[in-house]
Simulated scan of single mutants.
Amino acid sequence: MAALKGEVRTFIVQSLACFDTPSQVVDAVKKEFELSVSRQQVESHDPTKAAGRNLAKKWVDMFNTTRSRFQTEVSDIPIANKAYRLRVLDRMATNAEKMKNLGMTAQLLEQAAKEVGDVYTNRQKLEHSGQVVQSISSLMDELAKE
C-alpha cells in the first residue's frame, strides 16, 4: 500500500465523514487525483470501522469535525430546502404537461401538494376547539368541589 499525500488523505477522511461509501471514495479519488487506491486503503481512514482503529489523532479529529458539520449544516444542501424542492417539482410538472404526460403531471402535483401540506415532515398540527378547554375547566371545577 503506497503512502498517500496529505491532500489525498484529507479528501478521503472528509468524504467518509460525509457518509460516502469506500467504493464511492475510490472512484472519487481516481477522478479527482488520477490515483488508484483500494477499498481497504480507504476504509483504513474511517475511525468508525475496525480497519481505522489505529488512525492518527489528527485524522480522527478531522473526521469527527467534518461529520458534525455535515450533520448540522443541512441548509447548505439545496434539496433540504422546501422552496427549492417546490421549484424543481414545478419545472418537472411543467415539462410533463408539455409532453402531454398527464399521469406524471398529476403525480407531481400531488407530491407538491404533500410538500406544501408538510406531509414529509414529522411535525403534527394540533387543532382544538374551545369546547375541549371548557370541558377540562368544568372537570377541574367538579374535582375542586369534591
Rank of each mutant, 00 (worst) to 15 (best):
K100A: 12
K98E: 15
F70N: 09
R87N: 10
R85N: 00
F63A: 02
A93N: 02
A96H: 06
K82T: 00
R67I: 03
Q71R: 08
K100Y: 10
K58W: 09
S68E: 11
F63L: 04
V88C: 07
R67E: 08
F70S: 12
V74W: 09
N64T: 08
V60I: 15
M62F: 04
R67G: 02
K98Y: 14
S75I: 09
R87K: 11
K58E: 14
A80W: 00
D90I: 01
L86Q: 03
D61F: 07
K100V: 08
T94A: 14
I79N: 00
K100D: 13
K82H: 00
N64V: 04
R91S: 14
P78W: 01
M92R: 07
T66D: 03
I79T: 03
K82D: 00
A96S: 13
S75L: 09
M62H: 06
F63T: 03
T66R: 05
T94M: 11
A83V: 11
R87I: 02
R85F: 00
M99I: 07
R67T: 03
Y84H: 12
R67K: 14
W59R: 05
A96I: 04
F63C: 04
L89T: 06
T65I: 14
T94G: 06
F70Q: 05
D90N: 08
K100R: 14
T72L: 05
L86H: 03
E97L: 09
L89P: 02
R69N: 12
K100Q: 14
P78I: 01
W59P: 02
N95Y: 13
Y84P: 01
M99W: 12
T65H: 11
R87F: 08
R87H: 09
D76V: 08
E97Y: 10
T66V: 08
D90Q: 07
D76I: 07
D76F: 07
K100G: 05
S75W: 11
I79Y: 06
T65W: 08
V60E: 12
V74P: 01
N81E: 11
R85M: 06
A80M: 07
N95I: 11
